[in-house]
């Protein structure tokens, strides 16, 4: 499958990236090359093969329902780029 500049632009919004026209041009060609390379997977017959998400196939890993202390609020918020005394602040979510 080949990749167009407009595909790249669409993906950039999905990925929440803002690309310059030069970046879009470069990525269209680089991603195109990579995707073309990856297309060789199509050669393999995987009709009867189950997908494998983890090489080590564990199941049923649980934690007990016991409350442990949370972090102090100031530690949680200490890295926030913008905050007030008790919350994170972000540009208005309305109209989004």
């Amino acid at each position: 499958m080949s990749l167009s500049a407009s595909d790249v632009e669409k993906v950039s919004l999905l990925a929440r990236l803002l690309l310059t026209p030069q970046e879009i041009e470069a990525l269209t060609s680089q991603l195109g090359q990579i995707v073309e390379y990856v297309d060789q997977l199509g050669e393999i017959d995987t009709e009867q093969v189950e997908p494998l998400a983890h090489a080590v196939e564990l199941v049923n890993v649980w934690a007990d329902d016991e409350v442990r202390p949370s972090l102090p609020r100031d530690e949680v918020l200490s890295g926030a780029p913008h905050r007030d005394e008790d919350s994170y602040l972000v540009p208005a979510v309305l109209g989004d």
């Binding site: 890993v61 649980w62 934690a63 007990d64 329902d65 016991e66 409350v67 442990r68 949370s70 972090l71 609020r73 949680v76 918020l77 008790d86 919350s87 994170y88």
Partner: peptide
């Protein structure tokens, strides 16, 4: 393992996992 109690002051029931910090990992509540 943060509490689910309703009505606590904002951001007092969070930890690296539920505040989405880098490196934190989820473990399912049985």
């Amino acid at each position: 393992r943060c509490s689910t109690q309703f009505g606590a002051p904002p951001n007092t029931q969070t930890c690296p996992v539920c505040s989405g910090m880098p490196g934190a990992l989820p473990v399912l509540n049985r």
